[in-house]
Structure formats: structure tokens, C-alpha cells
Design a protein around this nucleic acid. Structure first.
Lengths: 166, 166
DNA sequence: GCAATATTGTTATGATATAACACTCATACC
DNA sequence: GGTATGAGTGTTATATCATAACAATATTGC
């Protein structure tokens, strides 16, 4: 049923996440006859290494440091590829890009975004999707994509702020 | 209960919408001791005159034609004011701005955006909000704002495309 | 009127994203 | 293995979206 996932908890070993994501990406690309080229692979890895959504130009700077071409099309092409493959999501309200934790299952990117620490948690509630789909249909609207971005205070920051007051 | 509204149907008299919106805006600003200055009022009106979300620079161009200052801060200040007052919404996935049809009641901007004609319908389903609020709380997350933007094909465009095939 | 504050003018720049065309490399086919 | 094809990348230029910083002006409360 409901599924939720965060790759922002400092408690976990994020390297595992990155490795899993990269492995999944390679498998998916192989299956679909897509080429996970050097720059695409490295872009994906760099996006994953950040615990927060990464801006295109931040990513470009990192790629440039490593000898990749430093012109914007480089990064936007890589992002376009990764977005189309479902390997990353774009967080519209931040103009930033985030590794997708379950690219292997088609899903919508629903996000909880902390205003304070800027960490982002992805969640994927089937019931919300079903409900939105049904409501769209009620308007004769054929739903293709959903942008669901919830902002506020994450548990940690909330505790930190109340703790400071107490 | 559930409320939905469109100001994109060509069937209606959009002038009524604009007048109502402007009247509501004046009332709200008066109540809250806010000043609906010339440029703010005209910006709101121009946003409403467009049936689709209007880009900041599109709006700026229209304002400039009418003798207002043509530098970007002019339009962004007006937009900031209108956004803060809840009189317009920003459609994040389009970087564009839309008149809010029910600024008088606090609400979230939920949008159905047609990929084909780019019209946008605002809807506001209390049950979706409640559901998201509860799910956020489940993660210890204190929800402050929601960006819900659904894209796809509106009823008209869907009919037009199937009609073309038939 | 006058001080305090809000609003607007103005210049400059930062941040995000794409167009257009040349070049290179991988792959598939012979 | 050669070579045509198309995918991918390099490069230059520019479009689009947004804000910083400070000066000038208008509004409001006294």
C-alpha cells in the first residue's frame, strides 16, 4: 500500500543509496536500450551524493571540476535524459533536481520539502494519486503528470526550533 | 464541501470574473489595511484578462505599454504583493501567474493544467488537503504550503483530438 | 507642515534554460 | 575492417526568469 521513503536521514549510509540507484539506472537503461554515458552516469551520481535537490548550475560546476564540458547544454542534456528515464525528478518550486529512489517502478514524485534545512523527502501515496485521478476525470481531464510539492517544517527542524524555545 | 471553479471556459462572460475579482481585491485590501495601488490593481486586472497564466515579463510588457515603468522590479513587486495577499497564484511548473478566483477564502491553489491549450483550471478539494495534511503529520512534518499542479489534456482538447481521429 | 514609512524608479546583475550548428563517436550493416 | 547512420557532445550565443541595492517620491499619521 502506501509507500514512503527518505534519503535524507543522516542515520543511514547514503553510499548504499547511491550504489543502489546507480545499479538500478544501469539495469533500466540496458533493458530499454538507452545509453547511460559517462556524463549522464556521473551527473546521476552527483545528484545522489547531494542530500538535497541540486540546481542545474551547481551540478554543472561539479561536472566541470571533473573535466566535463562546462557549458549549460551539457548539464541540461544530462538532466533531460535522466528526467525522461525517470531516474531523477525536478522539484519545480526549487528549480532543482533530485535522485529518484524507486525509478524501477513507475510513480509520481510527491515531495515534502523543509523550508528550514531544505531537505526533501519523497513519498508516494497511492490513495492521493487515485483521488486526484478521479477528480481530474470528473472534470473530463486526462491526467498525465502530477507535481505535488508540500513545504513546511520537517520533524528535525520542528524539534530544533521548539527545543530552542523550551 | 468540494469546490471547483474554472475561469477558462469561453462560455462564460469573463468580464464578470474580472470585475468580481477586482471588487474582492479592493475589499480585502481595505479590510487588511493594504494599499491596492495603481500598478498593483492594473497588474491584477491584466492577469485576470488573460485566460491563461501570465509570465512576469508578459505582464511587464503590458504594463509598460500603458506607461508604467518597464523595469523588472516593477512587475515582481506587484506580483509579490498580489501573491502575499492571496489575490494571485504562481504556477510553479510554468513560472507564470494566475488570478485567484476565491481570494476571500483562505485556500490552496490546486491546478489542472492543459498541455495542449495551456488553460488552467483551479480546483480546491478539501479532502485532498486533509489527506495530505494527515500524511505530512505522519512524518512529523508541519505543513505550511502546497503546490499541486496536475498536467494533462483538458476535456475540450481531448475531444478535439479524438474528434480529429474519428 | 513634517517626520516616518511605504512605494516606486533605476541600474545592474544573478540565476535558470534553450537555440542553433559543428563535430565526434558508437553502432549496425555490409 | 570500412563506412554510413544517428546519437551524443562541444561551442557560441542568447532567451527567460528573478533579485540586489540604493535613490527618489508619495502617503500617512501626527
Amino acid at each position: 500500500m502506501d509507500h514512503q521513503e527518505s534519503h535524507t536521514h543522516s542515520s543511514h549510509n547514503h553510499n548504499d543509496c547511491i550504489e543502489t540507484a546507480l545499479a538500478t539506472a544501469e539495469t533500466l537503461c540496458l533493458e530499454q536500450g538507452q545509453r547511460l554515458t559517462k556524463v549522464r552516469r556521473r551527473a546521476l551520481e552527483l545528484i545522489w551524493q547531494s542530500h538535497r535537490p541540486l540546481g542545474a548550475y551547481q551540478l554543472l560546476a561539479k561536472l566541470a571540476e571533473e573535466g566535463f564540458n562546462s557549458a549549460p547544454p551539457t548539464v541540461y542534456r544530462a538532466l533531460d535524459f535522466l528526467l525522461a528515464a525517470g531516474l531523477v525528478h525536478k522539484v519545480e518550486s526549487m528549480n532543482a533536481y533530485l535522485g529518484c529512489a524507486h525509478a524501477d517502478k513507475p510513480h509520481k514524485g510527491y515531495f515534502l520539502i523543509c523550508d528550514s534545512c531544505h531537505n526533501v523527502m519523497e513519498f508516494d501515496y497511492q490513495d492521493v494519486h487515485t483521488s486526484l485521478l478521479e477528480k481530474a476525470a470528473r472534470h473530463g481531464f486526462e491526467l498525465r503528470a502530477e507535481t505535488i510539492e508540500l513545504t513546511g517544517l520537517c520533524a528535525k527542524c520542528k524539534m530544533a526550533s521548539t527545543g530552542a524555545n523550551a
